[in-house]
Design a protein around this nucleic acid. Structure first.
Lengths: 344, 344
DNA sequence: TTGTAGGCGTTATCAG
DNA sequence: CTGATAACGCCTACAA
C-alpha cells in the first residue's frame, strides 16, 4: 500500500502535491497547466503546491515536452564589446519569451565551434546562435546537418540553407576610407584583423574598394594585421610608424583603433590633425577615448536582436524558408577624424 | 513483437543503437559510460553509435542523474565590464569541469533576483553564482532556503551560512582617497553610485574613512551620486562643477570615472594638474582613456574565478562548512592621478 | 559479461 | 471532470 516513501526532505514532486491535496497526479498536472478542472480540485492543488513548496522539475519537463526553453550563443570571446552588445540584445529577446541564455566563449577554436554545432543532438538547448569568425568546409557541413535550429551571425555560403544575419562591412569599410579621403587624407594605413578570418578578408576588400573609389593606389607599406584586440592594435600602429608616416589609420575594429590612438599619442602625433583614426563596430566606449573615436557602426545590438528573433521564429515554424537578413551600417564621425581646419 | 517503431528520422536513442548493434540497451549504456563490457560488444556499440549518429539526450540524463552540468551567473547588467570579467573567469572554470554557463541579466530588479533564487527548485542548473547590488531581508531569506547551492559575490550578513567572495572595497576606497591626499589634493569630490545599494553604501564609508585618516572634514558640497554608468558619471561631474571646484574626483567605479574625465576635458580642466581622478574596478579599458585612469582594482576576474571554484567545491561536498573568501584590492596609479610636479 | 525491468518527474491518453 | 497508466530517454540494480 506504500510502494513509495518520499521522505519529507526530498524535493516535492507532483506525487507529493497529489498526496497532500488528496487528488491524482494527473489532476495536479492539469491544474498546473491550466487544463479543465473543477474549482474544488484546483484550489486544493494550489494550496498543496504552496504548502509543500512544489516546483516542476526542468529536466523531467524537458524530457517530456522536448523543449528546454534554453538557447545558446556562441562567440569568440565575451571580452569583446561587440559580443557583449549581442549578448545583451539576445538576452533581452530571450527573456521576453521565457527562454534562458547559455553562453559559449570559444576563443575562435574551430574544434570547439564544431563540437558545439555537432553536439546539438544532445538537445541541451532548443537552438543556437553562432558568430564564427572563420567558416571552414567543416563548419558548413556542421551547419547543414545541425540537429537543432541555428542562426549564424556573419557570412555563409549562398547555397547553405541557414538563417543568417549579416552586415555589409565591406561597404562600411569602403565608406570609412572614402570619408578619410574626402577630408583630405591620402596615406591611409589599414590595421586589419587576421586575414584568414571572414571579417578580416571582407574588411580588407572594403578598404581596397574605398581606395579604388577615390583613385588611390594601394600601398603595401601601409598595411598591418593584428588580432582584433587592444594591445594588438597598438603594436600594429608601432610597426607602421617605424617604417612610414600615414595621415590616417583605418582599423578593422574599435578595440584596435583605441590601441592605435594610444600609440599615436605616445608618439607625439596629434589626432586628427596629424593622423586621423577611424574604427569599426561603434562600441559604446568609442566615446571615452580622446579624441572620441569615429567608427563604422555595424549594428551589433541589432544583429543580436534580429538573430534571436530569427531563431524564435524558426522554433515556431521549423519548415520555414531560411532568411538572410542584412543590417545597415552607418559611419559615425567624431573627433578622431574631424575634417581638417586647413588643408595641409 | 514490435511495440516500438522509431522512424528512422527520429533522434536516435539508446534503443536505436542497441538495435543496430544487436545488443541490449543496458550494454549500450555500459559501454558509453565506461563500465565493464567485452571488447566484442564495445566495438559493436561504438560502431552503431557512429552509424546512427547517436548522442545522449541531456534532459533524460539530467533527470536520471540529477545533474544538469549547468551553472548560472546572475548579475545586474552584462554591459558593465566588471561583470564581463566575472563571466569570463567563471566560464573558464566551468569549461574546465565540463559545465555550461547560463546568464541572467537582472537589471538590478530585486523581484527578478528573488525569482531566480526561489526558482532553483526547478533544478534547471546545479548551482548559482549571484552578485546582487542590494541585499534585502527577502534576499537573505531566499538565500537561506535556496534549493541549490548558491555562491554570493558581495557582502552578506555574517550569520548567513552561504559561500561568499568579497572584496574589501571600503578599504580600497579609503586607500584611493589617501593617495589623492598624499599627492597634494584636499578638495576631493566623490561620485558615488546609488546609496541604497551595497556597493554604494560601502564605498561611501570608505571615502569617509580615507578623509578621516588624513584629517580632512567631509564637505557635503563635494558629494554626488549617479548610477554606476558612463553617462551618469558625466552628469554628476557637471553638477559638481556647477557649484564648486574640487582638485580631485574619486569615483565609485571606473565607468563613471571615464564619464567624469570627458566632462573635465570639456570644461577645459587639465587632468591630473587641475583635477585628479581615480576610479574603482580597474577595468581593462581604464588604459584607453587619456590620461590613463588610476583605479582601485577589485579583482573582478579573481572574484569570478574564486566564486566558481567555491561553487564546484560545494557541488562535490554539499555539507561542507560555508566559506567566506576575501579578494585583495590594489591601487593602480596611472596618469589621471599622477603626483603633482609642483606643490600647489 | 549480458539482459530485463523499474524508476527519475512530467505530460497526455484513455477509460470511467 | 477525474484517475490510472503509459511514455519521454537514460541509468542501474538485479537476475541470468
Amino acid at each position: 500500500m506504500t510502494p513509495k516513501r518520499p521522505t519529507s526532505s526530498a524535493a516535492p514532486t507532483v506525487d507529493t502535491v497529489a498526496r497532500a491535496a488528496g487528488v491524482s497526479i494527473a489532476s495536479v498536472s492539469r491544474v498546473l497547466n491550466g487544463l479543465p478542472a473543477s474549482d474544488e480540485v484546483a484550489d486544493r492543488v494550489h494550496a498543496a503546491v504552496a504548502e509543500v513548496g512544489y516546483q516542476p522539475n526542468a529536466a523531467a519537463r524537458s524530457l517530456k515536452s522536448r523543449r528546454t526553453h534554453q538557447i545558446a550563443f556562441a562567440m569568440e570571446n565575451i571580452a569583446n564589446p561587440v559580443y557583449v552588445a549581442m549578448v545583451h540584445a539576445i538576452q533581452e529577446v530571450a527573456k521576453e519569451r521565457g527562454y534562458q541564455l547559455l553562453l559559449h566563449s570559444t576563443d575562435a577554436d574551430a574544434d570547439d565551434e564544431l563540437a558545439l554545432l555537432n553536439g546539438l543532438g544532445r538537445r541541451y538547448v532548443d537552438g543556437l546562435i553562432i558568430s564564427p569568425i572563420r567558416m571552414s568546409p567543416a563548419h558548413v557541413e556542421a551547419l547543414r546537418t545541425a540537429a537543432a535550429p541555428v542562426v549564424v551571425i556573419g557570412a555563409t555560403p549562398d547555397d547553405l540553407a541557414v538563417d543568417t544575419v549579416r552586415v555589409d562591412s565591406r561597404a562600411g569599410a569602403a565608406r570609412a576610407v572614402e570619408h578619410l579621403v574626402d577630408t583630405g587624407r591620402r596615406r591611409i594605413a589599414f590595421v586589419n584583423g587576421p586575414v584568414d578570418t571572414t571579417p578580416g578578408s571582407i574588411r580588407r576588400a572594403g578598404y581596397e574598394d574605398g581606395l579604388a573609389a577615390r583613385g588611390i593606389a594601394l600601398d603595401e607599406e601601409l598595411l598591418e594585421t593584428a588580432d582584433f584586440r587592444l594591445a594588438g592594435g597598438a603594436e600594429a600602429a608601432r610597426r607602421i610608424l617605424e617604417r612610414t608616416r600615414p595621415d590616417a589609420i583605418f582599423c578593422a575594429n574599435d578595440l584596435m583603433a583605441l590601441g592605435v590612438l594610444n600609440v599615436l599619442r605616445e608618439a607625439g602625433l596629434r589626432v586628427p590633425e596629424d593622423v586621423a583614426v577611424v574604427g569599426m563596430d561603434d562600441i559604446d566606449l568609442a566615446t571615452i577615448a580622446w579624441p572620441q573615436l569615429s567608427s563604422v557602426s555595424l549594428g551589433s545590438d541589432e544583429r543580436g536582436r534580429r538573430a534571436a528573433e530569427l531563431l524564435f521564429e524558426r522554433l515556431e515554424q521549423p519548415d520555414r524558408e531560411p532568411r538572410r537578413e542584412l543590417v545597415e551600417t552607418s559611419l559615425v564621425v567624431r573627433g578622431s577624424s574631424a575634417a581638417r581646419e586647413v588643408a595641409s
